[in-house]
C-alpha cells in the first residue's frame, strides 16, 4: 500500500441518485461521500442492487447524480452539459464492461481503433497507439481476429486495450471478470493491476468476488447507499 498521499482525483460529495418507477422511488446512492487518490486501484463491493454500477456510471460520466456533486481531476463533472460530458469522457475515461461489448463485425484492431477515429491525430500516430496497447495486453498476434474468433479472456483484453488507447486518467471496470473462468479472470486482474501500476492509472473496479478485490489496493463496500471502508464480513 502507498504510504505518502497522492492528490485526490475523484471526489464525491452528498452524492444521491434516485430512480422513479411510477410511484416507487429507488435510491441506490444516498448522500454518498468518496475521496480517491490518484493512481489507486479501488475495488467496489456490495450486494446485488446496492448501486455499484450506478456509482461507476456516474464516475464514468455516462449517468448523472440526482443531487450532490462529483469532481474529477478538479473538474466538477456533475455540472457539465451532456455534450461536454461526452467530450470529457472520450479523453478521461476508459470503460471496461463485464460483457466486453466489442463490435462483432470489427476486428480486434478496428475495435481498439474506435475511440481514436474521432480524435485529431494522424493515421500513423493512430496506428502506433493501437499497436502499442495491443502489445500491452499481449494480443498483437490476434489483431485481425474478429471477436467471435477470440476467447472470453482475449475479448476482455481487447476491451482493455480499447479503454487504454486514449490514455485516460481513469479506468472503470464493471465486473470485468464476471463472465470468465478462474484462470482467465486471474490473468485479467493481474493485467489490470500491472497496467495501473506501470501507467499510473486510477482504477475503479466493481466486483462480487473477494478474490478479485484482493488485487486492488483498497476495497470499499456499498451498503444502504453509502460506502463503508472495512469488510462487513
Amino acid at each position: 500500500m502507498k504510504s505518502q498521499s497522492s492528490p485526490i482525483i475523484i471526489s464525491c460529495r452528498n452524492l444521491t441518485k434516485s430512480y422513479y418507477k411510477g410511484d416507487t422511488v429507488v435510491t441506490p446512492l444516498e448522500n454518498l461521500d468518496l475521496d480517491l487518490e490518484k493512481g489507486r486501484f479501488l475495488a467496489l463491493m456490495g450486494p446485488s442492487g446496492s448501486g455499484k454500477t450506478t456509482l461507476l456510471n456516474i464516475i464514468a460520466g455516462i449517468d448523472s447524480p440526482t443531487s450532490g456533486s462529483i469532481t474529477i481531476n478538479n473538474q466538477e463533472i456533475s455540472r457539465m452539459s451532456r455534450s461536454q460530458l461526452t467530450r470529457w469522457r472520450g479523453k478521461s475515461i476508459g470503460y471496461i464492461f463485464q460483457l466486453y461489448h466489442l463490435i462483432p463485425v470489427l476486428t480486434a484492431y478496428e475495435n481498439v481503433e474506435l475511440p481514436l477515429l474521432i480524435q485529431k491525430i494522424s493515421r500513423s500516430e493512430r496506428e502506433k497507439r493501437v499497436l502499442n496497447v495491443l502489445e500491452l495486453v499481449g494480443l498483437e498476434d490476434r489483431m485481425s481476429h474478429f471477436p467471435r474468433q477470440l476467447s472470453g479472456g482475449q475479448e476482455q483484453r481487447v476491451a482493455i486495450a480499447r479503454a487504454l488507447v486514449t490514455d485516460p486518467m481513469i479506468l472503470v471496470a464493471d465486473e470485468p471478470t464476471g463472465d470468465l473462468d478462474a484462470a482467465s479472470a486471474q490473468n485479467i486482474l493481474s493485467l489490470l493491476r500491472q497496467l495501473g501500476h506501470d501507467l499510473h492509472k486510477t482504477i475503479v473496479m466493481v466486483t462480487h468476488d473477494v478474490k478479485a478485490a484482493s488485487y486492488a489496493d483498497l476495497t470499499l463496500h456499498l451498503e444502504k447507499g453509502k460506502l463503508i471502508e472495512s469488510s462487513p464480513l
Binding site: 455516462i62 469522457r89 472520450g90 470503460y95 475511440p115
Partner: peptide, 10 residues
C-alpha cells in the same frame, strides 16, 4: 451506447 461511452458525440 458503447460508442457514446467511448466519447462519440451526437
Amino acid at each position: 451506447a458503447v460508442l457514446q461511452t467511448l466519447g462519440y458525440e451526437n
